[in-house]
Design a protein around this nucleic acid. Sequence first.
DNA 1: AGTCCACAGGAAGGGCAGGCGA
DNA 2: TCGCCTGCCCTTCCTGTGGACT
Length: 402
Amino acid sequence: MTKNNLTTFFEEFLHNKSLFVNRSALLSSYTPESIPHRDKEMNNIASILAPALKQEKPSNLFIYGNTGTGKTLVVKHVVKNMGEISKNKKIPLKVIYVNCKLKRVADTEYRLMSQLASCFGKAIPSTGLPTDEVYKSFYSAAEKEQGIILLVLDEVDQLIKKVGDNVLYNLTRINEELKGAQISILGISNDTTLTENMDIRVKSSLSEEDVFFALYNAVEMKSILQERASKAFHENTIEQGVIEKCAAYAAREHGDARKAIELLRVAGELAERSKSEKVSFEHIDEAEEKLEREKIFDIIKTQPKQFQAVLYSIITLKNKNPIVYTGEIYDLYKKICFKIGLRPLTQRRVSDIIGEFELIGIINTKTISKGRYGRTREITMSIPSSTNPLTKKILEEELSIA
DNA sequence: AGTCCACAGGAAGGGCAGGCGA
DNA sequence: TCGCCTGCCCTTCCTGTGGACT
């Protein structure tokens, strides 16, 4: 673009009427004033947590339901509200929110505890300390607090799958050690079957109360989208049926409202960029593709080289056969390592890496036996195959494979 | 009925980065 | 600074196993 072109571009940009009134209403960081179709759950959670305002320790609470059913939103909403009241009335109440999925932040016992301690302003080194030392650090910080501490552990299923339920056991017993403050634990899980495999003691103490979030049905989803859209867009900027399409897309993705809202936002942005006057069906399709790409892109970029190499071999093999096995992956992985000058890890480790990919949700595995030809894991992709070429390309760039 | 494949996945321990007390 | 501690990532070694094949 020459300087003149650029000026014209910006002038046109300013001149163009935006489709959005308030784009932020469609961002994931946006907290709506009300959460439609979740009154029952919200009231339920509020009544369970309410004793905290009277300085009585609320029951530990286990909240479960599929992704995008509003769990986090509702909890944050309730907790925020309580925070404001406690502040106004000077009731000692502290809320700690931790997302356990964050890789290398809160995905091990040590890291979670160090994260918790840091919420009290205690800096814990990334390694070097014994874990019980980190626990003590957290205890002593919590001890200095007064009143009730609400500890929200989001995506707690990820943590438990990775390191077991020992952490929760320790956390649920923390109050026995504390004299000052009392801690209530709110576990939020996307895995609806999580408690089934948990230690019975942990299970009973974590879910003294539990709240289930059901999927949104098509009608509810539509009304959620409509409400957000009316806040975000100017009137008559959305073509007839577009909202329904978003809702249908979300229903396909297991009733995930967050995704549907994001889809609408990206579609709007694309429409605006292409100078359309309305958000149309094509924009939704385009947005769907874009979102899928970005999601995968983000995951890949943050993986270590070794993980990328493993994923690259999976995808390469996937392009040839619909089903791939651990052995094939490892063979190709070794070749790739040789090609790019990476020291190959052992098969044992690669097997674990494959397991981690399953945990992230990129692949699905199933242990099968091929009889005379041994036992192995059958690996299928859980991301759409249409994104494979692009994923492969990104990996090639990341790994500098010519 | 027994064999044997090709892994899964548990246990133990090494190396590394980093913390702590002397 | 040094010796010893830790968590994490990884390797080594190992036992376990479903079912096709003999």
